[in-house]
Simulated scan of single mutants.
Amino acid sequence: MAIGAMIHTFTVQLADMDRGVYDDLTLRVARHPSETDAYMLTRTLAYCLEYAEGITFGAGISQADEPAVLVRDMTGKITVWIEVGAPDAERLHYGSKLADRIVVYTHRDPAKVIAPWSGKRIHNAEAIRVFSFDPGFIDDAAASLERRNTMTLTVTEQQLYLDLNGTTLSSAVHMRGAIPEA
Rank of each mutant, 00 (worst) to 15 (best):
Asp100Met: 08
Ala143Glu: 10
Arg28Pro: 00
Ala125Trp: 05
Thr11Tyr: 14
Thr106Arg: 02
Thr42Met: 04
Phe131Arg: 13
Ala2Met: 11
Ala111Ser: 15
Asn124Lys: 14
Leu153Glu: 00
Met40Asn: 02
Leu25His: 09
Pro135Glu: 11
Gly119Leu: 08
Tyr22Cys: 04
Arg43Thr: 06
Arg121Thr: 13
Val80Arg: 14
Val104Cys: 07
Arg129Glu: 15
Thr9Lys: 15
Ala59Thr: 07
Cys48Thr: 03
Asp16Glu: 03
Glu66Thr: 05
Ala182Asp: 11
Thr42Asp: 02
Gly76Pro: 03
Ala141Gly: 11
Thr154Trp: 00
Ile82Trp: 05
Ala64Asp: 12
Arg43Leu: 06
Glu146His: 12
Ile3Asp: 14
Phe10Ala: 07
His8Val: 02
Ser132Asn: 05
Thr154Cys: 00
Val84Ser: 02
Asn165Cys: 06
Asp23Cys: 10
Asp18Met: 11
Ile3Ala: 14
Asp16Ala: 01
Val21Tyr: 06
Asp24Pro: 00
Ile102Gln: 14
Leu145Lys: 05
Ala125Pro: 03
Ala2Gly: 01
Glu83Leu: 07
Pro116Asp: 09
Ile78His: 02
Ile114Arg: 15
Gly119Val: 12
Gly136Thr: 06
Asp65Tyr: 10
Trp117Gly: 02
Asp109Arg: 12
Phe10Val: 10
Lys112Leu: 14
Gly119Cys: 09
Phe57Arg: 06
Gly76Ile: 10
Val155Ile: 09
Gln13Phe: 10
Arg19Thr: 08
Ala127Ser: 13
Thr156Gln: 11
Val69His: 08
Thr44Ser: 15
Thr75Arg: 12
Pro110Gly: 05
Asp163Thr: 15
Ile122Thr: 07
Gly60Ser: 08
Ala172Leu: 10
Arg31Asn: 01
Met175Gln: 14
Val21Pro: 01
Ile55Asn: 05
Asn165Tyr: 07
Asp65Glu: 13
Lys112Gln: 15
Gly136Val: 07
Arg31Gln: 15
Ser171Leu: 05
Glu126Trp: 06
Arg19Val: 04
Gly136Phe: 04
Pro135Ile: 07
Leu25Arg: 09
Ala30Met: 10
Pro180Leu: 12
Ala127Met: 12
Gln158Ile: 00
Ala141Met: 09
Phe137Gly: 04
Glu50Trp: 05
